[in-house]
Amino acid sequence: MKGLRALWADRAARPAVVALGILVGAAVFADFLASDLPLAVRVDGQTHLFPCVTRPAALRGRSQATLTGTEWMIRTPIPYGPAQTIAATGEVRDGPPPWGPDGAHWLGTDEVGRDVLARLIHGARVSLFIAVFTVLIAVGVGMLIGGVSGYLGGATDAVLSRLLEVMTTFPLVFFLIALLSVLRTQSLWPLVLALGLTRWTDVARLVRAEVLKLKTLDFVLAARAMGASPLRIVTRHLLPNALGPVLVTATFGVAAAVLLETALSFLGLGVAPPTASWGELLTQAHRTLVHPGAWWLAVFPGVCIALTVLSVNALGEAVRRKVDGGV
């Protein structure tokens, strides 16, 4: 909270904080913003509260578009789910989809009639989830390896440094393709794990350098004199002091992970359809280049990605200013 307030005080970072707040908010409350089921409804003598989240069996196969005989209904702001095709909405129009932006579909639909805005909102959840957890794993692994390597030195450091060099120079495509073809499931975790396990090298290099610098300082000597174990010295004394630069790298890492997710989706290694992610939306736009007029399919997801990456980078700059200036 204190950190957030400090960032808010940084005027240059304020637009980025606002933009990210909106994006994260959309991601967290995706089900309340865009769903095939309403926020609340009374139908067939039963009141359903937030069926868009609870998805009760009584409403299976029905949607805001097709619900009939309701006493009252509070719709979601965008009354479409991310995977709701025209077959489900029962919309009838002159031509086949994709349809351009209009009053019903603010950002248009894709070639099977799914609402682009609904898919963007739910895609934000997937893309940001992947990015954030990728970075968390990368930071965890990187701090562990960098910390151990820097503190122990000697043979351990030599081996871990080689490993670092190998991972840095290793063509990531191979690793990701192979790992993902083993771990391929509907879950997002394999993707997160694969990305996290390839992106820890920056953090490790940074932490190692910090630890090498810090471990010669008197407070570490004092801790050792008091009989603190190496584990305690690394986890309680060294790593917390190296957190600042790591935080900066981690913030930039989120932006990089968002971009990487789009690239992986494009190569067919991203989330499995029909799950929406920003990368998957862009990929779809590429596939539908055969509909040469459907610019909205490509433009809106790209804007979301660019906005996220720019905001996260601006935030990273702000964090760097804070860290360099001494919080």
Partner: peptide
Amino acid sequence: LTVVWGVPTFWVAVLLLLVFSNPRA
């Protein structure tokens, strides 16, 4: 340059294709 850096390459590629090798543009 800051803005441009945050834009995924393949999105740019798709947009460029939409503009420069599109019979409708």
